[in-house]
Simulated assay, not measured.
Amino acid sequence: MAVLHCDGSLTADRASYGGIICDDAVVAIMAYAGKGDINSVLGMELFAILKGVTFCIQRNLLRVSIKSDSKLAVDILNGAVDCPWSKQILRDRIAMLLQQLQRKEIKHVWRELNQPADFIAAMDTRDGEAIFYPLDFPQDLVELVKNDSDCKVFLRTLSH
């Protein structure tokens, strides 16, 4: 089963999205990043998923584990919570794509487990979209993907 890690980002001056697609052995297949025009974090998170699922279908990867650090986006796509009306068209577009998959799961992961997608979403692609293949990955991204394939353990600390 392919793994799709997605992330959306919204700062004061930029909306962006990104993701990375790996095979079932956590070997990177491709990554993508782009500038968005949706003025909400949820919108960018959903858009990152939309783009990632589109890339999976284009590459005939039809068994996909979708992972996002946005619990709200995951809950919306799994039908656990209602979607805000302003994001329903985006959710419906994703739902139509998901029907094309032979097998799917949509899971929430902690931010520490989504670091490659977070790194990619923060990349400056000017006004367009960029696709990266493993030989072109920046060294920092190579290290983050290696941490995933090595099953690096992250410990969370609770602050009081």
Score class of each variant (00 low, 15 high):
residue 52 G to S: 13
residue 81 V to Y: 08
residue 62 L to C: 04
residue 94 I to C: 07
residue 63 R to T: 06
residue 80 A to I: 15
residue 96 M to D: 12
residue 50 L to W: 02
residue 102 Q to Y: 13
residue 82 D to L: 14
residue 97 L to T: 08
residue 53 V to D: 01
residue 89 I to G: 07
residue 64 V to G: 07
residue 55 F to A: 10
residue 74 V to S: 02
residue 96 M to V: 12
residue 95 A to F: 11
residue 89 I to P: 02
residue 76 I to N: 01
residue 101 L to N: 05
residue 85 W to S: 14
residue 72 L to I: 14
residue 52 G to N: 03
residue 67 K to L: 15
residue 62 L to P: 01
residue 85 W to M: 06
residue 87 K to Q: 14
residue 97 L to C: 09
residue 68 S to Y: 04
residue 74 V to I: 11
residue 83 C to Y: 04
residue 59 R to I: 04
residue 73 A to Q: 03
residue 88 Q to T: 07
residue 61 L to H: 04
residue 83 C to W: 09
residue 84 P to C: 15
residue 99 Q to M: 15
residue 95 A to R: 12
residue 96 M to P: 02
residue 101 L to Y: 05
residue 55 F to R: 08
residue 57 I to Y: 06
residue 75 D to S: 10
residue 97 L to R: 11
residue 100 Q to V: 00
residue 87 K to S: 10
residue 89 I to W: 02
residue 61 L to F: 11
residue 63 R to K: 12
residue 86 S to A: 13
residue 75 D to P: 08
residue 92 D to A: 10
residue 55 F to M: 10
residue 76 I to R: 01
residue 85 W to C: 11
residue 95 A to S: 15
residue 83 C to D: 00
residue 85 W to E: 07
residue 74 V to C: 04
residue 62 L to R: 11
residue 63 R to W: 07
residue 66 I to L: 11
residue 56 C to N: 01
residue 81 V to M: 11
residue 64 V to W: 04
residue 55 F to W: 00
residue 97 L to D: 02
residue 62 L to N: 03
residue 68 S to G: 09
residue 86 S to R: 11
residue 88 Q to K: 15
residue 60 N to V: 01
residue 58 Q to N: 15
residue 92 D to N: 14
residue 100 Q to M: 13
residue 78 N to H: 07
residue 95 A to I: 11
residue 93 R to M: 15
residue 64 V to K: 03
residue 86 S to T: 09
residue 51 K to Q: 14
residue 95 A to T: 05
residue 92 D to S: 13
residue 66 I to V: 11
residue 58 Q to G: 07
residue 82 D to T: 11
residue 90 L to M: 13
residue 62 L to D: 04
residue 74 V to H: 03
residue 80 A to V: 14
residue 95 A to W: 12
residue 60 N to M: 09
residue 101 L to H: 10
residue 98 L to H: 04
residue 53 V to M: 13
residue 93 R to A: 09
residue 88 Q to F: 07
residue 89 I to E: 10
residue 64 V to R: 04
residue 68 S to H: 10
residue 70 S to P: 15
residue 96 M to N: 12
residue 68 S to Q: 05
residue 54 T to I: 08
residue 89 I to S: 15
residue 79 G to D: 07
residue 78 N to K: 15
residue 71 K to G: 07
residue 76 I to C: 03
residue 68 S to F: 00
residue 84 P to H: 13
residue 80 A to E: 10
residue 75 D to N: 13
residue 82 D to W: 01
residue 66 I to P: 05
residue 95 A to L: 12
residue 95 A to C: 12
residue 60 N to Y: 08
residue 98 L to C: 04
residue 69 D to C: 06
residue 77 L to V: 09
residue 52 G to A: 05
residue 88 Q to Y: 04
residue 82 D to H: 11
residue 59 R to N: 14
residue 79 G to S: 06
residue 69 D to V: 08
residue 83 C to F: 02
residue 102 Q to L: 11
residue 52 G to R: 02
residue 99 Q to P: 00
residue 74 V to N: 00
residue 86 S to H: 14
residue 61 L to V: 05
residue 52 G to W: 01
residue 73 A to P: 06
residue 99 Q to H: 12
residue 98 L to M: 12
residue 75 D to G: 05
residue 68 S to W: 00
residue 79 G to E: 08
residue 100 Q to F: 06
residue 62 L to E: 03
residue 87 K to E: 08
residue 97 L to I: 05
residue 57 I to D: 02
residue 50 L to T: 00
residue 88 Q to D: 01
residue 69 D to W: 00
residue 50 L to F: 10
residue 56 C to S: 09
residue 72 L to D: 02
residue 91 R to E: 13
residue 89 I to K: 14
residue 75 D to Y: 06
residue 84 P to Q: 11
residue 77 L to M: 09
